[in-house]
């Protein structure tokens, strides 16, 4: 990918972050934003910038970066253009882990870990289902297995919620529709670690994913341990899904859409695709969250609904170009 396009992605993300901090119920000027960040502005705008807007914007950026990078890597390793944490059932598994931990009144710090355990369980289940049906190497079978595991995860969540009180159900529902409303600096720090580790592993595996995308036998001929590398991608994808799901619930279409946009912009090798998707995904979710909280202010739209509203028509246009 050309240097100018990397530059464009960085500028886009910077613009998204500044816009995300500046706009909202209270509009701030770029000057207010800067003084708020430095901390020498009016106490009101410093508080808005530092405790409300900035963690929210950064959390949205991290969610987008993690989902898009995971989608890019999974599409490569499964050789399937529809693969992403949601369709593969990984996010569903993470959601089950998080819901079970919440229902068991586990401390907040344990929720991302429970989500990770759930995501890994769903990966294992999807791979077992694919293997049992004899389609281990067939990307379509893995995806179908993932869809089934995702549906199962949904059913588990509904069973858990059926016995919960009304308040808890409303909270859970809001979370399942995706939201960064209650962003805290603690969440930002936790997700930052998840995203740095997850995206780091995926970028390191980038070249191996290029080889894996050529097919199992060719990859084996080039010295790749196919099972181990694809498991590595699944685990890193599960880590990113767990981190984003426990921070912001279910935000769909980012992992599907952004890698395709990045490919259309000229990225072809997976190291480039994954890194560029992380930048692009971060911008997309920051803008989507900005829209979610300003379109019908003072009430908010669910973030997951906004990304789907943007994602579906975009994807239909892409589908024509991809097929």
């Amino acid at each position: 990918m050309h240097v100018s396009r990397w530059g464009a992605l960085v500028v886009l993300l910077a613009a998204a972050i500044v816009a995300g901090v500046a706009f909202g119920t209270l509009h701030l000027s770029p000057g207010d934003v800067m003084h708020g960040l430095i901390g020498d502005g009016a106490p009101m705008s410093v508080a808005v910038v530092r405790t409300l807007r900035l963690p929210r914007v950064l959390l949205a950026a991290l969610v987008g970066a993690g989902l898009a990078a995971a989608g890019a890597a999974l599409q490569g390793s499964t050789r399937n253009k529809l693969a992403e944490p949601y369709l593969l059932g990984v996010s569903g598994g993470a959601a089950v882990g998080a819901v079970l931990a919440t229902a068991a009144r586990a401390p907040a710090s344990l929720i991302p870990i429970a989500a990770f355990a759930g995501a890994l369980t769903s990966v294992a289940l999807a791979l077992l289902v694919a293997r049992a049906s004899g389609g281990r190497g067939d990307p379509r079978v893995v995806l179908m297995a993932g869809v089934v595991v995702g549906a199962f995860a949904n059913a588990v969540i509904m069973v858990v919620l059926a016995n919960a009180d009304a308040g808890a159900i409303r909270g859970a529902l809001w979370w399942m529709m995706g939201s960064v409303t209650d962003a805290s600096w603690m969440q930002v720090r936790v997700l930052f670690v998840f995203v740095v580790v997850g995206v780091g592993v995926l970028v390191a595996l980038g070249r191996a994913i290029d080889v894996l995308a050529l097919g199992d036998d060719t990859a084996a001929g080039l010295g790749i341990h196919v099972g181990r590398v694809s498991l590595g991608v699944y685990c890193a994808g599960a880590l990113l899904a767990a981190g984003t799901v426990s921070a912001a619930g279910l935000v769909g279409f980012v992992g599907l859409l952004v890698p395709h946009l990045v490919r259309l912009a000229g990225a072809r090798t997976h190291r480039t695709i994954i890194a560029a998707a992380a930048l692009g995904g971060a911008s997309l979710v920051v803008f989507a969250d900005l829209f979610a909280r300003t379109a019908r202010a003072p009430s908010e739209l669910p973030l997951g609904a906004v990304t789907a509203l943007i994602g579906v028509p975009f994807f239909l246009i892409l589908l024509r170009r991809l097929t």
Partner: peptide, 23 residues
């Protein structure tokens, strides 16, 4: 190691359908 073997022996398998358009 698989890598050491791949350094010494190159393999062109029967079928290969690239999923993505590299140059």
């Amino acid at each position: 190691s698989r890598r050491a073997r791949a350094v010494r022996i190159a393999v062109v398998t029967q079928r290969e359908e690239p999923a993505f358009p590299l140059t």
